[in-house]
Amino acid sequence: MDPFSVLGIPPRLSLDLGEIEKRYRDLSRALHPDKFVGRPASERRMALSKAIEVNEAWRTLKDPVKRAEALMRRAGVPVGETKEGAADPALLMEMMEQREALSEARAARDKAALDRLVASMREREQRVIATLASRFDAPDGSADDAKAALPALGELRYVRRFLEEASAAEDELGEAG
């Protein structure tokens, strides 16, 4: 199911997540089993499966990578393991270096180095999301625009992976400090 239609919101990459979360909560409340006590079984089943869809849609839309993937699918561009082509060698080299630097900072418990790496990667995340948004959110966006955004989506996944590991490292250093 397309998560945008499930929650009834316009398909865009730049979204007000607060607003969408509210919508998700309202829908979940309306579909709660308590509201269907005494209703026919078919109606209860329908509400339950709708509630599952709503949950899934929110989970997809709150994550920028999954949100971009949903937009790709809407545009008819296949995404996933074997469908996206090779990675840009320069990006791979850079990401390998960044991940190694992160591992070193983590092993050395170097909070200052970790903070620097995270700050620059967060900036990069914003830049990549802006690039993706410019592709997806143009009023006359096409499937070609979506396809052209694939490398940026790949880059965003690398950036997010880095930030996930960085946040684990931050927790580790924070606990000790």
Partner: peptide, 13 residues
Amino acid sequence: GLVGAPACGDVMR
């Protein structure tokens, strides 16, 4: 050899 899978964010040397 440096390779990667942009679809999952993996990088391998």
